[in-house]
Amino acid sequence: MNSLLRRSIFPIYNNSLKITCRSFAEVPVKEKIDKIVKNNKVVVFMKGVPEAPRCGFSNAVVQIMRMHAVPYDSHDVLSDESIRQGIKDYSNWPTIPQVFINGEFVGGCDIMLQMHQSGELIEELKKVGIKSALLTAEESKKKEESK
């Protein structure tokens, strides 16, 4: 009886163990990132935190976001090795920082800088219902002039 019980329980135990192991290893990084990027309209993966970026490229992105007064979620890849590699795999992009708008990968520092300079960023933000502070400033300036 005892051995019968053991035999029938063991495979189940074994299986559940495997499932648990896997859910702690491969699957969740992608799922975790998926959740993160969809959790907020604008998400930035960077080195350090917005108050103290630890890389010049990450800092540049933070400054751009600040200029446009964009509310965003930030994730420090230096504090989580699985995210650091995971985010590169997720977006098939080899470098940090990475910016997501509406769950979609938009680019790194160079692209953000160019989108900022060309005015494209204002348009992209508008699409997701975020009004850039630069646009607000421009509008009030125009209003002043037409008075």
Binding site: F57, T95, V106, G107, G108, D110
Partner: peptide, 25 residues
């Protein structure tokens, strides 16, 4: 822009995997 960058990243994939840490394009 993003496709141009992806093109360059792809061409330099090997370098990016083996020591090149930052690539501004």
């Amino acid at each position: 822009l993003i496709k141009r960058h992806r093109l360059v990243n792809d061409i330099l994939k090997e370098e990016l995997q083996t020591g090149v840490h930052a690539l501004s394009i």
